Simulated assay, not measured.
Amino acid sequence: MTEFIQSHEPAMRLGFFFGILATMALWEILAPRRKLSLPKAARWANNLAIVFLNSFLLRFIFPLGAVGVALLAYENEWGVLNQFYIPDAAALVVSVMVLDLAIYLQHVMFHAIPVLWRLHRVHHADLDFDVATGARFHPIEIILSMVIKFAVILVLGPPVLAVIIFEILLSTASMFNHSNVRMPRSLDRLLRSMIVTPDMHRVHHSILDHETNSNFGFNLSWWDRLLDTYRDQPEHGHQKMTIGIREFRQPRQTERLWGMLTIPFAGKVTGYAINRRWNSSK
């Protein structure tokens, strides 16, 4: 079974990507949470353009991918989990949770270190918040993220199946929790006890610094609660909150491919973004 999944992993990931993209896009049409401020067609065209650019670069630079690195670690018995006998199910669960925690910590790091925040601003500079925002990242950030992921895999030594599952979860969860969808408050409360919901993550895309520097989780919602970065709701409410970054408000820069690619090299970062999260009460 694992060998079948491994051999079909690229097709599975692609299928899940387009499947969740189509599902959430339809949900956004039927039950939008907020009214968008910009025409969707142009935004989507440019956001998806950077997705395809990133996919091409990753395939060219890292042909093995995360699954290939996990297989390499397994064959050479590298990593902590490969040094002990651990039941397959336990190794699977532990690996997915540790990888998810690593992504949380990486996300915090990209807010805390100025040069990394420059890269991550591309994701936050989107003036609207919908499913297309979930895959919008600067190519250099994507490359650095992949290197960090490789390092975690080599140190941890997770099962190959765990890495496949995590890679699928990471992309689908990102599109789900960036979606501009309305759901009953009771359902949101139930889901966010386990996973990051759109209402929970939307707070993270607020123009207000103390809201931007909260709710860093991508999949499991536990890390924000355990590590004191959780914020329940935006102080101005979901309908009135402003999405984006204060320094970048012109669509020609924030919503066009060339503009997105140049954001890391524009302006100054005068202080650590994360240092401003304590300026307001939770």
Rank of each mutant, 00 (worst) to 15 (best):
A173P: 01
S214M: 12
L187Y: 09
S171V: 15
S171R: 05
D209G: 07
A173G: 10
H205T: 06
L190W: 11
M194Q: 10
M175Y: 07
V196Q: 11
R202C: 09
N215R: 11
N213R: 02
S171Y: 01
S174I: 06
L187G: 01
R202S: 07
E211W: 10
N180H: 03
R182Q: 07
E211P: 13
M200G: 00
L187H: 06
D209I: 01
M183H: 08
L190D: 04
S186M: 07
N213E: 05
H210R: 02
M175A: 05
R202E: 09
D199I: 01
T212I: 00
T197D: 03
R189L: 13
E211F: 11
S174E: 13
M200Y: 09
P184L: 10
R202I: 04
R189A: 15
D199Y: 01
N177W: 07
N215V: 02
E211H: 14
H204S: 03
D188E: 15
S171H: 07
D209N: 13
V203M: 04
S174N: 15
R189V: 09
H204F: 02
E211Y: 14
H201F: 02
M183D: 05
M194N: 09
T197V: 12
R202M: 15
T212W: 00
R189T: 08
L191I: 15
L191Q: 06
T197F: 05
R185V: 12
M175P: 05
T172R: 03
N215G: 10
L208S: 11
P184V: 11
N177R: 12
D188F: 02
P198G: 10
V181S: 00
R189C: 04
F176L: 09
V196L: 09
L190R: 08
S193H: 11
M194K: 10
N180V: 08
S193Q: 13
I195W: 08
P198V: 13
N215C: 10
L190K: 08
R182C: 01
S214I: 04
L190A: 15
N180Y: 04
I207T: 14
H204L: 03
S179L: 05
H210Y: 10
H178F: 02
R192T: 15
S171P: 01
T172F: 06
T212Q: 10
L208W: 07
E211R: 11
R182H: 08
S206E: 01
M183A: 13
M175V: 14
S214F: 06
T212S: 04
A173D: 07
T197N: 06
L191G: 06
S186F: 06
D188I: 13
I195Q: 00
D199Q: 05
M175L: 14
I195V: 15
F176Y: 13
R185N: 09
H204A: 02
R185M: 09
H210E: 02
P198D: 03
L187A: 07
M183N: 09
V181Y: 02
P198Y: 07
P184S: 12
S179W: 11
S214W: 05
F176I: 11
N213M: 03
L191N: 05
N180R: 03
L190V: 10
R202T: 02
D199T: 04
N177F: 13
R192F: 08
N215Q: 14
H201Q: 00
S171C: 06
M194V: 14
H204C: 04
F176R: 02
E211T: 04
H178A: 02
V203D: 01
R189D: 08
